[in-house]
Nucleic acid binder design. Structure first.
Lengths: 245, 245
DNA sequence: GGCCCCAGTTTTGCATCCAATCGATCCGTC
DNA sequence: GACGGATCGATTGGATGCAAAACTGGGGCC
């Protein structure tokens, strides 16, 4: 249970930083459920460090809006209401729309190739997911699902890279921290129609960028991000009815 | 120099948090110059606390992109190149544009009144600033300058409030942390033409919101924020030529 | 039977202490 | 005189210790 003290962590002497990343990963992946408390002592023991770097990591996560620290009480993982998710979708839609607009004018051959590859892989992963999963895996973390999630990240990542704006990337990364991905995972894994729609939207965006049509790329991207957020918001709201919190 | 240990700080037991705010304020105001190192011991002594909360505060500022922490070396205040500032202007332009669009449809009477008040105060402060300052105050922190800076904050603040999107506010606040305001201060204080132009842009935005024309409000706001950033970027680039860093 | 109060325990928050690392300076050698 | 290496000082990074605050449970009182 303690065990890992040095499982190749390459910390560069920034232990608190590394802890923040690791905790963030667990929170986004859903290993640490929304609403749960994070205890200094528990984390410290698990990673084989003292409470000091744990405190630092938690304060960083608090500053990033991932957890909330109540004085003398502790840190708990932030959840988001449907409204929050829609708002985040609007914000992210603007920024990714801007990225798509910039990318349409700046993308190079290699990035274009990777963009089309990502879109293609996404498509095929959805096919595989739909074919191989006849309600057999309610948890939704099939291999195919992992693949389309990865392809999706690549798709958006290449566009962001092509936009070549460091501050834009930073800001989008900041927003992504506020949205647990496993929610998106679960919301999409069970709804093939959404996956298909996403795929079609990706194709439209890729086409516009291929054609160098900045305005169209932007509109398509903004619409895509917003509709994804809308779907996620509805899923969360439905879940909320049956699950206590 | 030590002195203040308890000058009404009302910390609620969140000392690290308070320190981060205070340090951020000093950095944004320019009291702590860009590029300078921030030493744990110095800050700890000045505020009469131990190094532990100082460390936490610096890590928070690092996570927010305000300072950079080099392992085993320390934290130094981040500056921004002209390019960074233009990128930030593009990002912020999108988000404040969205805010203006939303505000045009949601603003209530009281907010509308405060919006027009802010715009009016800005105008008058610029008049006063221009009249009272015949190159007499190169530092640029005249009373009139303070007034227009405040009116400017109010103007943007009311629009953001009317947009009624918590996540949007959070994101814009996040971006604001990356831009030292004293730069903007100094850049504008010496250039009346820019102040006038800003004033005119504010009026256009206010008019569009008054008229409930969301699309026009958005365009005007985006253009306004971008041109402000462009002016600031040029000022920083010119400064950079004569000043070492 | 329900409510309130009080002690015990848990947990956070900060301070202090010790180790590790980096840069600077000084010395020796070529 | 210049370069290379070792030692010293300064500074950060992490661990531990201790006090304060908040939850928990139990007992007494109304």
């Amino acid at each position: 249970m303690v065990a890992e003290t040095q499982n190749g962590r390459e910390t560069d002497g920034a232990l608190g930083e590394w802890l923040a990343d690791e905790l963030l990963r667990r929170i986004l992946s859903g290993e640490v459920p929304v609403g749960s408390w994070i205890r200094h002592a528990a984390v410290a023991e698990e990673f084989g460090v003292s409470r000091t770097p744990v405190r630092e990591a938690l304060r960083v996560l608090h500053a990033q809006g991932v957890v909330t620290i109540t004085p003398n009480r502790g840190a708990r993982v932030n959840g988001h209401s449907g409204r929050d998710i829609r708002e985040l979708g609007a914000v992210r839609g603007e920024l990714e729309g801007l990225a798509a607009e910039l990318a349409a004018g700046l993308i190079d051959d290699d990035q274009l190739r990777r963009l089309n590859s990502a879109w293609d892989r996404y498509d095929r992963a959805v096919d595989a997911h739909q074919a191989a999963d006849p309600e057999a895996d309610p948890a939704g973390v099939t291999e195919a699902a992992r693949l389309w999630a990865e392809a999706n990240e690549d798709f958006h990542g290449v566009i962001l890279e092509a936009a070549a704006s460091h501050q834009l990337s930073l800001t989008i990364a900041e927003i992504s921290r506020r949205l647990p991905r496993n929610s998106a995972f679960a919301a999409y894994a069970g709804n093939s129609r959404l996956l298909r729609q996403n795929s079609a939207e990706h194709r439209q965006i890729a086409e516009a960028i291929n054609a160098g049509d900045a305005a169209r790329a932007r509109r398509a991207m903004t619409r895509h991000v917003r509709s994804s957020a809308e779907a996620l918001a509805r899923w969360v709201e439905n879940q909320g009815q049956s699950r206590d919190r």
